[in-house]
Design a protein around this nucleic acid. Structure first.
Lengths: 204, 204
DNA sequence: TTCGGATGGTGACAGTGTCAACATTGCCGG
DNA sequence: CCGGCAATGTTGACACTGTCACCATCCGAA
């Protein structure tokens, strides 16, 4: 219960309502799903008036946009962390793939907003769209690196990028949506095993 | 404008409001997205009172459930049609895959509801969940047939089914969500070319 | 022909996104 | 040190939504 304002002043101001709104929104989405999110509910949980969020986000869509930015930054960080120290291009690509699926499973609330909220680019901050682009670029360059290592550096990496993205994104989506029975997610390292299994199936 | 009641009686009864609601809802989703759908808007478009839909669907979720059923039946029909007359197991599988992606692109409003609406199984009619199961079964048996043809009939078809589903579903999802630039969809047979390209990329 | 169930209408309620008008606060220049 | 301004929060309102209880109308079967 140690939230709300750093210094116990008048308590009129919250302290960091913007950040609190983002984490609260994520929590609500995790509990009630994306369509169960309401700004008023977030405000209520934070003990703040129903219109307070509008001091920080012009719009509900703006909140979601910020959440999307957070999500892509997290995905990017997870990808970089997983690929760190891995040299072999194919191993790097697979590491990113596993990180992609793992992130979706670990942060389903962000993943759902990233790909499930139908919002126009227009409402997103440049910094947030940039994060999304970077995540895609990382995949693209990883595929390009693999092609180069195979002596096919002159090929367009885009078809391969699309193919790889489709596979990994499909698995992540099916898992997050509960389309794949939860028993496939039981146990330590289940996501990694599952993802590598799917990848290897196509590389027989 | 030739809708509303078959016989021009008192016009108090609509004629087939249930069916009209389903097509109208689909239209609204296509225009405004899934979160832009409201029962009242549908009722308004059909010239009917705001509570009339409740005579046919106990719930907004029930409407969505029926739409999901429609969607899976459509997907199933598209799959069967595409595989008709095709004998080679691998060709059959690919035909289903292309049909899957094509259906998503052709009926994005259904596809979005099928996989984007976070609703519990509880609210769905048995007939509708059955359709979803059948669509999955068709994929499963197709994969099993391919395995059998390759002399690996004793293997569990589930991993392969998952791998194939992930790939195709990922591509469909990315297309429907506009994650893949629309230029990849331009021209006749673009979806088929794109899908086969992705499939072949993994079978080099 | 009559009556009951199926279908549709009205009005109400709570919850939501959003805005305008107002209140409180922290902070920065004089 | 202090006075005012911008940032932040509050209150009250509006339109819209899902949903319900209650009433109206109609079709077909007994």
């Amino acid at each position: 219960m140690a939230q709300r304002r750093k210094k116990p002043t008048g308590a009129y101001h919250h302290g960091d309502l913007r950040a609190a709104l983002l984490t609260t929104a994520a929590a609500v989405i995790r509990e009630r799903g994306l369509h169960g999110l309401s700004l008023r509910e977030c405000a209520r949980r934070l003990g703040v008036s129903h219109a307070a969020p509008y001091r920080h986000f012009g719009d509900k869509a703006a909140l979601l946009g910020a959440l999307i930015g957070e999500g892509f930054r997290g995905l990017l960080a997870a990808g970089h962390a997983a690929m760190e120290g891995v040299a072999d291009p194919e191993a790097r690509l697979h590491a990113y793939g596993v990180a992609y699926v793992q992130y979706a499973v670990d942060a389903p609330e962000h993943f759902r907003v990233m790909f499930g909220a139908e919002l126009e680019e227009k409402v997103m901050e440049p910094a947030d769209t940039a994060a999304a682009d970077e995540a895609f670029e990382l995949l693209r360059t990883s595929v390009a690196a693999l092609l180069a290592a195979e002596g096919r550096g002159d090929e367009d990496p885009l078809p391969g990028t699309l193919a790889y993205w489709s596979l990994v994104h499909g698995l992540a989506t099916l898992l997050v949506d509960g389309r794949i029975p939860a028993e496939h997610l039981a146990g330590e390292g289940a996501v990694e095993r599952l993802t590598r299994g799917v990848l290897e199936h196509w590389e027989r």
